[in-house]
Simulated scan of single mutants.
Amino acid sequence: MILGIGSDLANIDRIAATLEKFGDRFRNRVFTPQEQAKAEARREVAATYAKRWAAKEACSKALGTGLRMGISWKDMAVSNLITGQPVMAVTGWAAERLAAMTPPGHEAVIHVTLTDDHPWAQAFVVIEARARPPLAAPAEGG
């Protein structure tokens, strides 16, 4: 079952200007060290940051809060699988919110997709609740 859906569109030029103006202050407030390392290693640095910004906004919307109610930017972090597929991890208050919205007997799965086409970066986040398989009954016998 779907627990939440969020999307966001970020302007790459606006993120580039913010990076230029605030530098590490902006990077360290919004992005984890791993996200920063990924972005700084890319040819399109600002586009990489913009996609991650959009993903954090989209995730906060999927959590039903937006960026309020105690969620920190760094409570949501985008990384990539070896295949390149983006994945979202949540910690802190975002993880608490996710746990609270997940029905008993289910596990939450966050799906994220990112794209960019200058000057836009876009992200979609879908939070799914998957039923956990029932526990096997203990074997009887002796």
Rank of each mutant, 00 (worst) to 15 (best):
M1I: 12
M1P: 10
I2A: 02
L3V: 05
D8W: 00
D8L: 00
A10S: 07
N11S: 10
I15Q: 06
A17Q: 15
A17F: 10
T18N: 13
L19Q: 02
K21Y: 03
F22W: 14
G23N: 13
D24S: 09
D24N: 14
D24G: 09
N28K: 13
R29L: 15
T32G: 10
Q34C: 12
Q34F: 03
Q36R: 15
K38N: 08
R43D: 12
V45F: 01
V45M: 13
A46N: 07
A46Q: 04
T48G: 14
Y49G: 03
K51G: 15
K51P: 05
R52F: 08
A55C: 04
A55I: 01
E57M: 13
E57G: 12
E57F: 11
A58Y: 02
L63A: 00
G64M: 00
L67A: 09
M69T: 05
I71V: 10
W73C: 02
K74I: 08
K74P: 05
D75M: 04
M76A: 06
V78F: 06
S79E: 10
S79K: 07
N80Q: 11
N80L: 09
L81H: 11
L81E: 15
I82V: 15
T83S: 14
G84C: 07
G84V: 04
Q85D: 10
V87E: 13
M88P: 01
G92W: 01
G92D: 00
E96F: 05
L98E: 01
L98H: 01
L98Y: 04
A99D: 08
A100F: 03
A100T: 05
T102K: 08
V109I: 12
I110S: 01
I110L: 11
D117F: 12
W120E: 13
W120I: 01
Q122N: 14
F124P: 02
F124C: 10
V126K: 04
I127D: 05
A129E: 06
R130W: 08
R130N: 04
R132W: 04
R132M: 14
L135P: 00
L135Q: 02
A139K: 08
G141I: 07
